[in-house]
Design a protein around this nucleic acid. Structure first.
Lengths: 297, 297
DNA sequence: CATGGTGATTGTCCTAGACAAATGAAGTAG
DNA sequence: CTACTTCATTTGTCTAGGACAATCACCATG
């Protein structure tokens, strides 16, 4: 696995990978005929774990010497904070369907949950925790790339159908949803849209990876009230803050800027003029705030 | 503007920006107190133009010396190349709905077409030509990134809903659909799925960007009969041929390999053992061939 | 407790050289 | 005239350490 592939896979920049090797003696990639780094799979797995722990506030020098098992244990310790046993049991049931040969059951299970809970609760209480469970299982190597892709695809199918069925043509406010250019993950965006649409907002999603200048252009020419950005846990927090600050400066002041997702959680202090969305319920709160502020007219 | 900001904004990597400065003498950023590059706004604008032209097939050394005005002129020249008046007129009718402020009409129009034509004809007769028209309009600079994204999203919504409504749990053959790692375009995949599902095939899509080794693993462990790959016009033909050859060698012989899309069109001769799908109708043909060959049992 | 200083940690940027993959031009065979 | 090879050029990405500012952990002082 080349250094560029590892960067894509782990979210650690090439510079960081090289400087870790120099400073901490890990990772220790072999070299190809051309002298370029080749990372073995198990080191990439460990890097993914480390990355996850960095996001949780650990520091590299502390954990980089630990084995994969020890890292998983630390991750576990971070986990068992607030686990509702009943809910976790239901997650485990769905999680075991995230297998290639059980895809039909996954689809059925998701559909049933959607019918039972309704769109908003389905997103907040089933999809969001399931997302996390899948992410963690992937970090621990319990599920692999095709299964994670399969999961993403099926959830996308369900959410897009449901959004289409609930869409209102001319609701207010008008919200433009998208992500920054190097953010591929779309589920956060779809979850936001699925939460907003039943509230009567008029959402337009541009999908992932829209250049900053184009976001601005679209927001202005489409006369949107709000621009919503989604950041997955894999997105570099620094880049998110910089990009958001730049976009905020570029947008007219009458267009609000909302940002949600793991990479911006707790960054409200550094993002003046931007509404940081804490979780899915907070999305609804933010919407109510907007409506209250604009009801006076 | 720092080098990281320019990378975000133009999509040109830091390495590329530095090597251009060294080789061509452009851009010429000033330095801050810390010796780090600071790009003036007008050079960033020019870099964006250059980036645009690179996507259109120009080469850096040819255009990097030109002024911003000259670059705009070249971009103009790329527009009205070989326009068949009749065809262009038809495209324009379809294309006028792909505007940010007309997204509601686009959705309505697509829905009506789907209801009128049925899923398979909708894909073959509406989506496929519209795809091409959008692609060409984008090449000519008549629509921009947000509009192309909007189009992709809306078509995705419709196709995914329709596929979900038509899916058969236990049909035959079992088909695994995905793309190679550097292929982001998903519409080809969805179009294939939408064509196959009404025929009673059991399709499972992994979405885009699945590593080759994982495609093989998924095909084997999921006991699929056929693996289908989609290649957009932007995918390098050479890479498609090499990747397919490698995958063919890695797959068991009893799993068929199908490849469709602009990048593999007409490459059947170089792809022994692989079924190259010419167009959407050919997808159905290939399916019938498979069934005929496996009916004997 | 809170606040501020200090030293260690850490990510990003720097320079300049190297090379393979992609491209275009010229030549050759069907 | 087309299709395939060959060869030179172009071009993006990788390499190596060095450097520094921002952040963090810690401790002392108000």
């Amino acid at each position: 696995m080349s250094i560029a592939a590892v960067e894509r896979d782990t979210g650690l920049s090439k510079d960081t990978l090289r400087v870790w090797e120099r400073r901490y003696g890990f990772p220790t990639p072999s070299r190809d005929a051309n002298g370029e780094r080749l990372y073995p799979q198990e080191q990439v797995d460990k890097l993914r774990l480390i990355r996850r722990l960095l996001d949780l506030g650990q520091r590299p020098s502390r954990i980089i010497g630990s084995t994969t098992l020890e890292l998983s244990a630390i991750l576990e310790a971070h986990r068992g904070k607030d686990l509702n046993p009943e809910q976790e049991a239901r997650e485990q049931v769905l999680l075991q369907y995230v297998r290639l040969h059980r895809s039909a059951e996954l689809v059925t299970g998701l559909h049933q949950a959607l019918m039972k809970q309704g769109l908003q609760r389905f997103v907040a209480e089933t999809i969001a925790p399931l997302n996390e469970a899948v992410g963690e299982a992937w970090m621990r190597g319990e599920i692999d790339v095709p299964e994670e892709h399969l999961y993403t695809e099926q959830v996308q199918n369900i959410l897009r159908s449901a959004i289409g069925a609930n869409a209102v043509a001319s609701g207010h406010p008008r919200i433009l949803l998208t992500t920054f250019p190097d953010e591929h993950h779309i589920l956060g965006l779809l979850m936001a849209e699925a939460t907003l649409v039943p509230e009567g907002a008029s959402c337009l999603s541009l999908g992932t990876r829209t250049p900053l200048a184009d976001i601005r252009g679209a927001a202005v020419s489409g006369k949107f009230d709000i621009v919503g950005l989604s950041f997955s846990i894999a997105y570099p927090a620094r880049q998110a803050v910089d990009g958001l600050t730049e976009l905020r400066a570029a947008l007219p002041t009458n267009i609000e800027l909302w940002a949600g997702g793991a990479a911006v959680a707790g960054k409200q202090r550094r993002l003046p003029g931007i509404r940081v969305i804490g979780d899915l319920n907070d999305t609804v709160t933010a919407l109510k705030e907007w409506r209250a502020a604009h009801a006076a007219h």
